[in-house]
């Protein structure tokens, strides 16, 4: 029989992996509603941003994914952000999850994400459109 992965509760997370991505974490939406992180839908983010006075949702399209030069545990993800298609690169742990529009949580290494966080996750790919935030009235 296949061995079950160790439960993430109580396990030490990598320092750059926030605790709120662990399956079962309670997330408060802008309207006060509480949901588990694994139950969040695209609409939850959109509706929360609509309520927010200072944040707005932006579309960030994955343009490139490559391994980090500093560590095999990290990946560099390049996004094209918003209507200006500004290029933004972020260096994240390969298991760091991003929320893809209409799809849900995705990471560069979904197997590690599931192992560490138990968060259902698909493979992040070039062309995926992720949810990101910017400030309203950014000038």
């Amino acid at each position: 029989a296949p061995s079950a992965p160790p439960p993430p509760s109580g396990a030490a997370l990598p320092p750059s992996l926030p605790p709120y991505f662990v399956k079962g974490s309670i997330i408060q939406l802008a309207n006060g509603e509480l949901k588990r992180v694994e139950d969040l839908k695209t609409e939850d983010f959109i509706q929360s941003a609509e309520i927010s006075s200072d944040l707005k949702i932006d579309s960030s399209t994955v343009e490139r994914i490559e391994g980090s030069r500093t560590s095999p545990d990290f990946a560099v993800v390049q996004f094209s952000v918003g209507e200006h298609r500004s290029q933004v690169s972020v260096e994240v742990l390969v298991e760091y999850p991003f929320f893809v529009f209409g799809q849900g949580w995705s990471s560069c290494c979904p197997d590690r994400t599931t192992q560490l966080l138990e968060l259902p996750c698909t493979k992040l790919s070039v062309g995926d459109v992720c949810i990101s935030l910017t400030l309203k009235n950014l000038k």
Partner: peptide, 25 residues
């Protein structure tokens, strides 16, 4: 007796990367 521990509640926006695009104009 085990005292109930408070469950942390995280705001929705902490889950979303804050990618502020650079404004060229």
């Amino acid at each position: 007796n085990v005292e109930p521990r408070s469950v942390p509640v995280f705001p929705w926006h902490s889950l979303v990367p804050f990618l502020a695009p650079t404004q060229s104009d």
